[in-house]
Design a protein around this nucleic acid. Structure first.
Lengths: 133, 133
DNA sequence: ATTATTGCAAAAGTTTTGCATGCCG
DNA sequence: CGGCATGCAAAACTTTTGCAATAAT
């Protein structure tokens, strides 16, 4: 049976509060300030558990370690090719619905049963666009 | 200046021919039959180069090593959560255009400049759907 | 009291890098 | 020749795992 732990609560709450998308190590370093005994394996273990439970999203990046997202509203991601930042793009319900419909239609081609999707847009973020001039 | 190499040609051609999405190691093992001197570092190096040139696509999987795709036609991927297989879903030009438009519209929210996207649908593939019954 | 979770260290899995040698232009 | 690419082995990086100790039910 699933047991409460101070560590898991800390990890989940922290992830829900921050709007960046930290790596496991970043999160570990930050939380170690509040809880010095914290071990990195605990962070990895809880992040994996939380992902399976659907409380947290794991984001694969084009290079480097995975990042984690405590935002479970339907949304997609933008990854800046220059600075590596990942930004949430939150969608309206009708946009989500349309997108899901499209994807389901596409999946019919291969007779698969769809249960989720992962959309990442890549390019230059606002900040990096400015820097180029 | 970029130099020709037998190894890179072999890797690219092989990737274009196969319709699965091999890992670097799978590709290495397969190609080692044709070219026993081949080293795995060469495979990794060339795959990375080819990805940067846009001749090959790197697919991040939900767990396990990256996979590579020699198909550069506009398409999206389906990843089966059961068997891990990755299948191409090729889109019609108008579908691509509509999807791109939608994504660009979404990206306006964060004032980013879009230059690509990565869409993966997850679920159960045809084969695994059958096995469940 | 029982059992899940922790922290640590070691191991595993994947990818990259340094360097001497070989091949391309 | 001069320099980029190769093959090998070692290193780097990220994540997982075994285990004894601790904390939650």
């Amino acid at each position: 049976m699933k047991k409460y732990s101070k560590q898991r609560e800390l990890i989940l709450n922290s992830l829900r509060k921050r709007k960046d998308h930290p790596t496991a190590e970043r999160l570990y370093l930050d939380l170690k300030n509040e809880m010095p005994e914290l071990g990195i394996a605990t962070v990895y273990r809880n992040l994996s558990d939380l992902c399976e439970e659907g409380q947290v999203i794991r984001i694969k990046t084009s290079s480097g370690p995975d990042r984690f997202d405590g935002n479970t509203m339907p949304h997609i991601h933008f990854e800046c090719k220059k600075c590596g930042d990942i930004v949430d793009i939150v969608l309206f319900e009708n946009e989500v619905k349309q997108l899901d419909n499209d994807l389901k239609k596409f999946a019919k081609q291969i007779s698969a049963e769809v249960d989720g999707s992962d959309i990442t847009i890549t390019g230059l973020c606002k900040k990096c666009k400015k820097k180029l001039r």
